[in-house]
Design a protein around this nucleic acid. Structure first.
Lengths: 126, 126
DNA sequence: CCGCATCCGTCTTGATACTG
DNA sequence: CAGTATCAAGACGGATGCGG
């Protein structure tokens, strides 16, 4: 199979135009992807997210959640209990993004051996 | 449809384990995604990539290409002509990643209006 | 306790100038 | 043309403090 045999559904316009770039930059930033994965099975509280996403700082979790909320991809529910509780959850739109995101995760999982081998070979040849 | 109705192919292990994280961090960094899109139709030269990917610096293009090459996702062909010429191209493995990546791009394209509306509404409510 | 804002040191990134 | 070197600007993580 050659490259030209592969056909992808072409986006309506040039995929590199401004708005699409903004959205992709949001999805593909350092932490958003992992927040999506962490929320895929339902609502999760702030500190539970913090524990689930290894290495994320409180600060970056807050910032990234705010951005995703602004984009309408996740919703924030605040319970004024003591101690306070805040649930984060994927919205309808957010869930529709889950399929492509999980496709990426699944790809990474099934190809990790191939990539690790490529790295070893590259580092050796160097 | 509720969230629990959605079933995804579960990766063989916990998706948050080390190697998968490393791979996802590479794919979902600021520039890799755009390099993939730019290479989807065949080999492209260094400066052509630079022009295609709006806003990328020469430095970051070099660094990102090197990383993707190390991971075996793209190949680098150097022609010792004057002026020199270097072609970058997706490898077999790299092409297999194209499907999930383009799914993400297509999603971003079809949902940009929804997201922009969500942002407007959020900024207004604030 | 939980969620969030702020300050500060570190590391990454970008702009610019230079080389084969 | 395709990089490399250098340095300044910005993003990020960790610690701390605060309000519920």
């Amino acid at each position: 199979m050659t490259l030209s045999d592969i056909e992808f559904p072409t986006p309506s316009e040039d995929a590199d135009c401004r708005p699409v770039r903004e959205i992709l930059d949001r999805i593909a930033d350092k932490w958003s992807l992992y927040i999506f994965v962490a929320l895929k099975d339902g609502p999760v509280r702030f500190n539970a997210l913090r524990r689930q996403i290894d290495g994320i700082s409180q600060r970056m979790l807050t910032i990234t959640l705010r951005q995703l909320e602004r984009d309408g991809l996740i919703s924030r529910t605040h319970f004024p209990t003591i101690p306070p509780r805040v649930d984060y959850e994927l919205t309808e739109v957010g869930r529709s993004l889950l399929a492509p995101v999980m496709a990426l995760v699944t790809w990474a999982d099934s190809n990790r051996n191939v990539i690790e081998e490529a790295r070893r070979q590259h580092d050796q040849t160097r």
